[in-house]
Design a protein around this nucleic acid. Structure first.
Length: 877
RNA sequence: GGGCUCUUAGCUCAGUUGGUUCAGAGCGCUGCCUUGACAGGGCAGAGGUCGGCGGUUCGAACCCGCCAGAGCCCACCA
């Protein structure tokens, strides 16, 4: 078969992906083998693939493919997340573009739009993953809003409610007035922004002409003031405590109270208290039993408490009320003030702290087994440095606000039957709710129509924290064979920024609902950044399109490029150059294969050099294989790839192939050819997890294969004992060859011209390896044991000396200078060793093995020095 | 403000319980080579007082302290 001179990835990749998929090689079902399982971190259902996904999913695919090759029953479960806030925002925007407001639609109508959108755009990302080579079992694709998933989420909610872990409470939450929903603390981004500090006089009631001055950044909230607080230590205001102040414009009287929270040094030392609109004020309000006046509507405009400002936006009111305060003489001054402002991660709107009735999940008890699991190593975070952060967060965990004022998601299964605070029940179905409601209300006449289900949905993470369980239907049917076989899973690969949103909560859910950890190892990737170190983002436009990269360079190249330099937990500064390197590597492999395939195969006599090259490479392969196994055991995946890269590029291509290459135009013997193919097959096996496509392509070209005999399901090479000495001596052979090449270069002797070599052997050397020197350095005759020939260039490797006799003129001064330089180095080395050895405290304190090593170094150096001296004598003087 | 992590070659990173003259790799850079797999190749080379200062030790890139710089997490003084 004719092989193209250049490797063409796009055709090859499509072909093999389809083949693997059709043959069912990605599929897994329980059997007697040991399972190896990864669940995908489900991407947003309407998302598109970005570089972060690429890194993440490449790592997962490497782990899965390797496990598959190693004989595990490997399963990678794919799926998507409904991502309530993000998806709902997209649908709302799209409807808006069509002139439809969400508020004009019923819940059912809106959900229909959302589902249409999901069906249209959903799963694009999963298709894109196929281009990357992701070997997921696509039959098992899950979506967090699938019926069974939905049911599981509701079941869990009801369960937690019945256990008393879910409660309803009023709480200061982060309100996004644009999305008209609460957002979690984690979804609020604080940044320093320029604002103003307004100094305002509040008249003291009953004391004409007396004022207390406060400083605030939010003058519009004075309409919600219900107190003024000062520090109890503050003598300046001591006489006012207990008196009343009058809120400007509103004209209400409010108490002046003392509270430790107030910093007497900041502003005026007096703080206006607006419990409805500031978390700290809320706490102070609770302590002093203050009234709560909420002045805002859901969209950030003022309500009836805003008096004549009713209906205006909070930021407009800030301007106009400042003006009114100025005109009426309450405003003393304004100062520029830089302070932290919280904005919604999604809409960028300034967050409004707001009291709202929400559902909460008590976290403290849930966190305990999850803390223990990581502390005791039952679940390992990789790299370990994230454990500190994990513990810090978990030990200070706060209750989780699980309700969201959205429609797209799992609707909270609470049903109200009256207007009282407690007139509700929680149940999996309306029918069960009715039953409960009849009991609780004592009214057997209640009908389904009398029940109103809570309007809110659950936080997205409240479904994804169950992901490793629900993908196997482990909530509804804990005894089902899939769940029993696959759970707990093995590795999770995800980004550190969702360690708390997701990973920590999955660990909690695992112990709470499955009685076991959800996974054993959590591999945390870094963030993919651009060359300038900026996070890749759509708005910056600095993120390459992964699909274009794949089209241009091939998926193998992109995978390799991303993994070459991304140790766990480290950010990956992405540079297209890395992908180029990956592509070059693919081409190198391809051409190495072309070379082998171009040889005519004939004859049964294996030359010595070929026999020795095979012997060496097999041992060298084992040597590297052991290192790779160790790297994988420690999840040093980049390191493993680099070692394979070097094994194939340097050891295999540059050395092995050059060594066995038959003389030009001549055939290679059958044995060497067969052994080379076998060696190549082993190379392909270890490389396959990283570069699945090109390895499969070459694998299939090597020899005819049965239909089910693909590389993807081949058997990984077993680590076996190997000859360490041989591997080391081969390194010396490489050094000898390099030295001869260097001499050729210096003396301008063409590689074609054969040379002779005289070796003076002072330490053991495997004579069989001479054949390699002959072949690779084009040496005709090797004499050993004799004396150093005159007029020759020399070099030393270890304690052995080598001489290349030359017809050309050898400058004795140059040779001498070279020897003297080597001698100087060795003498320096010897001096440093002796300095150590002559230090009594070293000899006394250092471990015996270290001292022995130093003595051996001393002896070796002495020997080498003696040799050099002898050579120098030969030059006279 | 509190906590955590990091700082090694131009860039990205190794350096695995302190012990070879230990200062490494890849990429990039420089020079040379190249009609027989691959110019997307080969060979050779340059480059760092291991952030700074001090300490512990016979011995420190590695352990300890302080300082400087970078990043992450948490809390958010109106």
């Amino acid at each position: 078969m004719e092989l193209a001179a250049k490797y063409n990835p796009s055709e090859v990749e499509r072909k093999w992906y389809q083949y693997w998929d059709e043959k069912g090689f990605f599929q897994s079902d329980p059997d007697e083998r040991e399972p190896y399982v990864i669940v995908i971190p489900p991407p947003n259902v309407t998302g598109v693939l970005h570089m972060g996904h690429m890194l993440n999913n490449t790592l997962q695919d490497v782990l899965i493919r390797r496990a598959r090759l190693k004989g595990f029953n490997a399963l990678w479960v794919p799926g998507t997340d409904h991502a309530s806030i993000a998806t709902e925002a997209k649908v709302v925007r799209k409807l808006k573009d069509e002139g439809i407001e969400k508020s004009d639609l019923t819940r059912e109508e809106f959900l229909k739009h959302a589902w249409d959108w999901t069906h249209k755009h959903g799963g694009i990302i999963l298709k894109q993953l196929r281009y990357l080579g992701a070997s997921c079992d696509w039959r098992r694709t899950k979506f967090t809003l699938d019926d069974d998933m939905y049911e599981s989420v509701i079941k869990v909610f009801v369960d937690l409610y019945n256990k008393g872990k879910i409660y309803r409470g009023y709480r200061m939450v982060n309100w996004d007035p644009e999305a008209r929903t609460t957002v979690s603390d984690e979804e609020v981004i604080y940044e320093d922004e320029d604002g103003k500090l307004y100094y305002i006089n509040y008249p003291i009631a009953g004391h004409q002409g007396e004022y207390i001055q406060i400083a605030t950044t939010r003058p519009e909230t004075i309409l919600g003031d219900t107190a003024i607080a000062v520090s109890p230590e503050n003598e300046k205001y001591a006489h006012l405590i207990g008196k009343k102040a009058i809120v400007p414009i509103a004209g209400r009287e409010i108490p002046i109270i003392a509270d430790d929270y107030v910093d007497p040094e900041f502003g005026t030392g007096a703080l206006k208290i607006t419990p409805a609109h500031d978390p700290n004020d809320k706490e102070i309000g609770d302590r002093h039993g203050l009234e709560i006046i909420d002045i805002f509507n859901e969209d950030g405009t003022l309500n009836e408490h805003g008096l004549h400002y009713q209906g205006q936006d909070r930021f407009e009111v800030r301007k106009s009320i400042t003006e009114e305060l100025r005109q009426k003489g309450f405003l003393v001054k304004e100062e520029p003030h830089r302070h932290r402002v919280g904005r919604s991660e999604r809409t960028k709107a300034v967050i409004e702290p707001r009291l709202s009735r929400q559902w909460f999940l008590k976290m403290k008890e849930l966190a305990e087994p999850a803390i223990r699991a990581v502390r005791e190593g039952e679940v390992k975070l990789i790299p370990k440095k994230f454990e500190n952060t994990y513990f810090h967060w978990m030990e200070n965990v706060r209750d989780w606000n699980i309700s969201r004022q959205l429609w797209w998601g799992h609707r909270i299964p609470a049903y109200y039957y009256g207007d009282g605070e407690e007139d509700f029940v929680v149940a999996e179905t309306p029918e069960q709710a009715l039953e409960l409601a009849r009991q609780k209300s004592g009214n057997p006449g209640l009908r389904l129509e009398d029940l109103r289900q809570d309007e809110d949905v659950l936080d997205t993470w409240f479904s994804s924290w169950l992901w490793p369980i629900t993908v196997f239907d482990g909530i509804r049917h804990p005894e089902n064979p899939d769940f029993k076989y696959y759970y707990p899973t093995n590795d999770l690969v995800t980004a550190p920024e969702i360690l708390f949103f997701w990973v920590a909560r999955m660990i909690m859910a695992g112990y709470e609902f499955a009685g076991d950890k959800p996974f054993e190892n959590v591999y945390l990737t870094g963030i993919v950044r651009d060359k300038l170190g900026r996070k890749m983002s759509k708005s910056l436009g600095n993120s390459p399109d992964p699909i274009k990269l794949i089209e241009q360079y091939g998926a193998d190249a992109v995978r390799t490029g991303m993994l070459l330099t991304s140790p766990a937990g480290n950010d990956l500064p992405f540079d297209e150059q890395l992908v180029v390197q990956g592509r070059n590597f693919a081409n190198k492999i391809w051409n190495g294969f072309r070379l082998v395939k171009s040889w005519k195969v004939d004859g049964d006599d294996q030359p010595d050099y070929a026999r020795e090259a095979v012997r060496w490479y097999r041992n060298r392969f084992q040597h590297v294989l052991h290192q790779i196994e160790d790297d994988f055991a420690k999840y040093r995946i980049s390191e493993a790839l680099k070692k394979i890269y070097s094994l194939i590029w340097d050891d295999y291509s540059s050395w092995f192939l050059e060594m066995i290459k038959p003389p030009y135009g001549q055939p290679v013997d059958r044995k060497t050819y067969e052994q080379t193919l076998e060696i190549l097959e082993n190379n392909l096996k270890v490389l396959h997890p990283f570069m699945p496509f090109i390895t499969e392509e070459i694998w299939q070209h090597i020899r005819p294969r049965r239909d089910d005999e693909a590389l993807i399901v081949a058997r990984y090479p077993e680590p076996a004992p190997y000859d360490k000495t041989l591997v080391e001596q081969a390194e010396q052979v490489k050094e000898i060859i390099s030295n001869i090449r260097k001499i050729r270069k210096e003396k301008q002797i063409a590689p074609k011209e054969p040379l002779d070599l005289t070796a003076v052997i002072n330490e053991a050397f495997d004579e069989a390896l001479w054949s390699l020197v002959r072949k690779a350095a084009n040496v005709k005759d090797i004499r050993t044991g004799g004396e150093a020939p005159a007029n020759s260039a020399s070099f030393r490797v270890g304690k052995n000396e080598f001489f290349v006799p030359l017809d050309a003129f050898i400058n004795p001064e140059e040779e001498k200078a070279k020897l003297e330089e080597e001698l100087k180095y060795l003498e320096g080395f010897l001096a440093s060793v002796r300095k150590k050895l002559s230090n009594e405290r070293f000899v006394q304190n250092a471990p015996a093995a270290v001292v022995d090593k130093e003595r051996k170094k001393e002896a070796d150096a002495l020997e080498k020095i003696a040799l050099l001296r002898k050579r120098l004598e030969a030059f006279g003087k």
